[in-house]
Every structure is written in C-alpha cells, then in structure tokens.
Simulated scan of single mutants.
Amino acid sequence: MTDGGETVWLPYPPNRVPGLPTGLSYAGRDGSAALPGDPGDVRFLVGERVLTAPGTRAGEQAA
C-alpha cells in the first residue's frame, strides 16, 4: 500500500495492519527478503513486537 509522502517500513504486510493513516507510503519488511526500497527514503521503521513472559519486561528472562 502506498499513498506517497513519507516512507514507513513495517514488520508485516501493510494490508495486515488496520487503521494505518493515509498520506504515508508503506512497505512490509520481515528481514527474509531484499529490502523493499531505498533505506535512504525511510523516515519511520517499525520494529517487530517483542513477546515477553508474564511478569517480565523486554530483554528480561522469566525466572
């Protein structure tokens, strides 16, 4: 999905993310394939969601 404007790389295909604002250009990037465009054009890079065990924070290990 591309609308022009600033470029946003998402960790999922844009059609899997409901409610994305208009006026931005979106590309999915899961790290397993070639880059979806020129990294110099990217203004926002959204990282993958990090799942944690209950009672821990990202980067900590469950006891």
Score class of each variant (00 low, 15 high):
E48V: 14
M1N: 11
G31S: 08
V42G: 07
D38Y: 04
L51D: 15
Q61S: 11
G23I: 02
R57S: 10
V17K: 05
M1R: 14
A58R: 15
G47Q: 12
G47C: 10
T22P: 00
E48H: 15
R43A: 07
V17F: 04
S32V: 13
L45V: 10
P36L: 02
R57P: 08
W9Q: 08
A62K: 13
R57H: 13
P36H: 09
V46D: 02
L51G: 15
P13R: 01
P36I: 07
G31D: 09
V8Y: 01
P14I: 02
A58K: 15
P18Y: 05
G31L: 01
V42Q: 05
F44V: 05
G47T: 13
W9T: 10
T7D: 11
Y12P: 12
E60G: 10
V42I: 04
D30T: 00
M1Q: 14
E6D: 14
V50L: 05
R57N: 07
G37F: 10
G37R: 01
A63K: 05
G19S: 09
G55S: 01
P39W: 11
T2W: 07
T2V: 12
G37T: 08
P13W: 02
L24T: 02
G37P: 09
N15A: 15
D41S: 13
V42S: 02
T22E: 09
L35H: 13
D30F: 11
G55L: 00
A58Q: 10
E6G: 14
R29S: 08
D38R: 04
D41T: 06
E6K: 14
T52M: 04
A62Y: 14
F44N: 09
G31M: 00
T2P: 13
G55H: 06
F44Q: 07
S25D: 09
D38C: 06
G19H: 08
G37N: 09
E60T: 06
T7A: 15
V50I: 06
G19T: 05
G59D: 10
L24A: 00
W9K: 03
A27W: 03
P14M: 00
P11L: 01
G37Y: 06
T52W: 00
